[in-house]
Amino acid sequence: MSGDQHDSHQTGTESYAALRTKALESLLVEKGLITTDVIDIVVRAYEQDIGPLNGARVVARAWVDPAYKQRLLADGTSAIAELGFGGRQGVDMVVLENSPTVHNVVVCTLCSCYPWPVLGLPPSWYKSYAYRARVVREPRAVLREFGLELPASVEIRLWDSNSDIRYMVLPERPAGTEHLSEADLVPLVTRDAMIGVARVQAPAIPARR
């Protein structure tokens, strides 16, 4: 191991860890214990699985399907389950809609309750005492630090997640995305937007004309 030298990789040559991994893999393949293909498949599956992608699919569907949006806002748990995402039993999902006049922000002031079936694992700042305490006291200042400047006319609503209810924000669909399909909308929706510390931005270059 490289000890406390963080910069252990020499230029032009592979790091010890890379060589060691390759050695282990080749030995296991030779012994017929694994195949290289199966490693590729596993890595891809995990890379694509959990994470905010599930939540992004929910948001994109709600943007293009008004009936779905209605169901989502009325009963988040069931509407999210329609898309195949579910969590532990007994935890309700509540979806909060942002509008030009209302901006919702989610926090867990007690610990780090988080809607992980749709958003994956919480980012470290979400769990930090600084965020949990400050977003309640001075939400506007905290949002500004995230790069989100809200006009004074916009009302900020804070939602405190707990062990029974997990909140997720339905961000506003950005202007200029009317021509985009549901599939094109999904990658625009970020985790931070679904926590409520960011807005969804329209793509800089329109995906399609």
Binding site: E14, S15, T21, L24, V38, I39, V42
Partner: peptide, 11 residues
Amino acid sequence: WEARAFGLAVV
């Protein structure tokens, strides 16, 4: 290599 090591452990 990190992805390979991850995949190896999972497999």
